[in-house]
Design a protein around this nucleic acid. Sequence first.
DNA 1: GCTACAGTCTGTAGCAACTACAGACTCAAG
DNA 2: CTTGAGTCTGTAGTTGCTACAGACTGTAGC
Lengths: 140, 140
Amino acid sequence: MTDYVSGRTLQRAELARRTSCNLETIRYYEKTGMMPDPPRTASGYRIYDDSHISRLRFILRARELGFSVEQIRGLLTLVDDGTQTCAEVKDRTEQHLADVRAKIVDLQRIEKVLAETAAQCSGKDVPECPVLEALTSELP
Amino acid sequence: MTDYVSGRTLQRAELARRTSCNLETIRYYEKTGMMPDPPRTASGYRIYDDSHISRLRFILRARELGFSVEQIRGLLTLVDDGTQTCAEVKDRTEQHLADVRAKIVDLQRIEKVLAETAAQCSGKDVPECPVLEALTSELP
DNA sequence: GCTACAGTCTGTAGCAACTACAGACTCAAG
DNA sequence: CTTGAGTCTGTAGTTGCTACAGACTGTAGC
């Protein structure tokens, strides 16, 4: 468990800790091509550096925001593929921006319904709960 | 395929059609205890009525609003027990509302980043694209 | 009555996106 | 040189569906 060149390289558990990512998820992201195959020690241990931390943080953040793995792979291709023109990158960025905005609209719609139904709620022990009624009634 | 007592009973495909639910999903909800085991014809065909329609609509609606199956099971227990207080339902709804709002804030933050970086983009064929730099850097 | 064919039944396999485990190996400390 | 934690691999389980195979049922046409 040496092979540490300096404080700048880390192993899988340390990368997991620093990103609050599950240990196995790192391997999963590697298997599915989102994280690069990291260099290995002579005995086969993965070694990571700061670039892996930021890439993993990006992935986790995007996942948290509801991007699918496939979409994130798209975003990451922008990063990885240096042959793209700025115009292409802009296009794809704007497409993702549109996705994000659509998602916000969706969530705001949900927020509205939840807020309205919760507001109607008396909090008393009545059998007719407006929340349940709202959920069973026809969609807006 | 008779056994129809009147226009008030329906089979699985009809229930699916009326709720825009996938046929197999109904069986899945039954298996996982969200939908009750329906009565059957002599030959084993499931038969449903209006109560099944509203329960299934409730489930689908709640799923659409982002409640997990586990959370919905919780809501349904409140309904089924009859002992539910409106306050309990309100609590759970507001908890979920808080989750949704947090998600919106997150998305608005990434929206800002994406919009700003896309706006900086010249669209020309320059190798140094500001979007790529923004994507790889730390998210605020 | 008989056959064709749509609809239903069951169990099981697949999907995404993880998460957890078993069994073998490695490494640093005591 | 043993112990114990950390790592490796492949594979199985999780959630919330969705799809399929193969058997059975029911109705309509002949």
